[in-house]
């Protein structure tokens, strides 16, 4: 079981604990895992949440070959004929690992939403 805490931009996911109320008086800098972020009125899953809970997703997953994922990181977007995804945020998967999110736009176009550190790392591997 989890609880959710919100700030103006982020929603955090915290493992539920009976003892949590004891800690209410502390000034908390971060509680649990950043789960969603508000982006232009939409909710975007964070990379951390995608990696942690993406395995449970039943749809809106785009499977890429590792070289396609590298190209997505370097070029910012890739095109292809992916089935079973609605327009909006999707999970990016290679083999059995979810890496984070992409933005699925017109049919066949995915825009990279992975963090800069990961983009730099993938760019270095090319």
């Amino acid at each position: 079981m989890y609880d959710f805490c919100t700030t103006s931009r982020k929603i955090y996911m915290v493992r539920r604990s009976k003892k949590m109320p004891l800690l209410n008086r502390f000034r908390i800098q971060q509680a649990g895992l950043p789960f969603m972020r508000r982006v232009a009125g939409y909710l975007k899953p964070t990379t951390e949440a995608a990696q942690r809970f993406g395995f449970a997703a039943k749809k809106n997953i785009i499977e890429l070959h590792e070289n396609e994922l590298k190209r997505l990181c370097v070029e910012g977007e890739v095109r292809g004929a992916w089935q079973g995804a609605d327009c909006g945020y999707v999970f990016l998967k290679t083999a059995s690992w979810i890496w984070g999110c992409g933005l699925f736009l017109d049919p066949g176009r995915v825009v990279c939403q992975l963090p800069k550190s990961m983009k730099r790392w993938f760019a270095g591997k090319l």
Binding site: Y2, M13, F26, R27, Q29, G32, L33, E48
Partner: peptide, 16 residues
Amino acid sequence: TANIKRLGLTNILVTF
């Protein structure tokens, strides 16, 4: 906080 996020842990509160 970067390490907590990278590892995906949900039961840690950070104080300063």
